[in-house]
Design a protein around this nucleic acid. Structure first.
Length: 344
DNA sequence: CTTAATGATTGACG
DNA sequence: CGTCAATCATTAAG
């Protein structure tokens, strides 16, 4: 309590109330009852300043004495006058700071990660549903993420309890300061604007603490993500049927194995994977095929036969059987000059 | 355990 | 932005 009182004095000292030169305090105090106004005022000022160095009981008693002092109204008006003169310099210092971009970034990220924002009661169900919709095997993906979600919930809980603690401490402290200022406003002039300023200063201090909390929460989430959601660590091979569909498309479009967006979507739907997974697959397939065509020759023949059979089934135009065994493989995707070492 | 296969990521490039 | 090339990390096969 004593600390807070002292701290408050330090803060209110910003209010522009300059401390007059009162000389030696002890010598002044001895002449308290004498009628000299200068020394009387100096004495009262000294008492005001001394309040903070005393215990609470002493301070209360002294405050009461001050409030009942016969010179109090006069002193008060003098203080008001001094204040009037200095108030301009206060206004100049006042700055309106816009919302910190850093804290906005952190807020956005926490919101995006589901740490802040609305409670995630139905969120896990939605995530499970999304996983079920995206993957052909809903069990593994949801189980894979359950650990992640548990840890995220833990982070979430810590974050919220800490945040609440800070907010409570902030409002408690603000209330305390405001009460003290109001109390003091009976002795010295304190405008509501000054109280506002003080509150803003306190809030700034606390928000910087909050930013640290948000910062470390973000870091924790990033670490968690890199540990649990890095798909490379939880790789699952596509099922056989999906690989067949993809290979079928690849080898039947060997001269130009670049499926359009629509084709990718269709393939994705057929294989029960995402479009980006289709893109990854084709990217990998193209590069690995080109790197070593010989290795894929068998596979190429297999799917070439397959497509040939399909084509034959669809249209009985089997007469055009012009050796589909190695369909266009010599073209190297129409850029043979890029691979001079692969001469067929 | 070693190795090959494979899905995903990253950075450069046009 | 999509693709290539290199690389990572995991899975399957030996």
């Amino acid at each position: 309590m004593d600390d807070q009182t002292r701290m408050l004095t330090g803060l209110t000292g910003l209010g522009g109330l300059s401390q007059p030169d009162v000389g030696d305090p002890d010598s002044v105090r001895k002449q308290q009852s004498l009628g000299q106004p200068q020394q009387d005022i100096g004495d009262i000022l000294q008492q005001i300043m001394a309040i903070t160095d005393e215990s609470l009981d002493e301070a209360q008693a002294r405050k009461h004495a001050l409030n009942c002092h016969r010179m109090k109204p006069a002193l008060f008006s003098v203080l008001c006058e001094i204040k009037e003169k200095t108030v301009l310099s206060i206004r100049g210092v006042q700055e309106e700071d816009p919302p910190d971009p850093q804290i906005m970034r952190l807020d956005n990220m926490l919101l995006a990660e589901g740490v802040s924002g609305p409670e995630k009661g139905g969120g896990s169900a939605a995530a499970a549903a999304a996983a079920a919709a995206a993957g052909g095997s809903p069990t593994d993906s949801s189980i894979e993420h359950s650990d992640y979600r548990a840890k995220l919930a833990q982070i979430r809980q810590i974050y919220h309890s800490e945040l609440e603690k800070y907010e409570q401490a902030c409002s408690e402290f603000t209330n305390h300061v405001m009460n003290l200022l109001r109390e003091q406003s009976r002795t010295r002039p304190i405008s509501p604007k000054e109280i506002e300023r003080m509150v803003a200063i306190i809030h700034r201090k606390f928000s910087s603490i909050q930013m640290q909390l948000k910062q470390s929460t973000c870091e924790a989430v990033m670490i968690l993500r890199s540990r649990f959601l890095d798909a490379r660590r939880k790789r699952r091979n596509f099922n056989k049927q999906a690989t067949e569909v993809l290979n079928e498309y690849f080898y039947s479009h060997l001269s130009n194995p670049y499926p359009s967006e629509e084709a990718k979507e269709e393939l994705a739907k057929k294989c029960g994977i995402t479009v980006s997974q289709v893109s990854n697959w084709f990217g990998n397939k193209r590069i690995r095929y080109k790197k070593n065509i010989g290795k894929f020759q068998e596979e190429a023949n297999l799917y070439a036969v397959k497509t040939a059979v399909d084509a034959a089934n669809v249209s009985a135009q089997a007469s055009q059987a012009n050796s589909p065994a190695t369909p266009n493989s010599g073209l190297f995707f129409c850029y043979p000059q890029l691979y001079p070492q692969c001469i067929v």
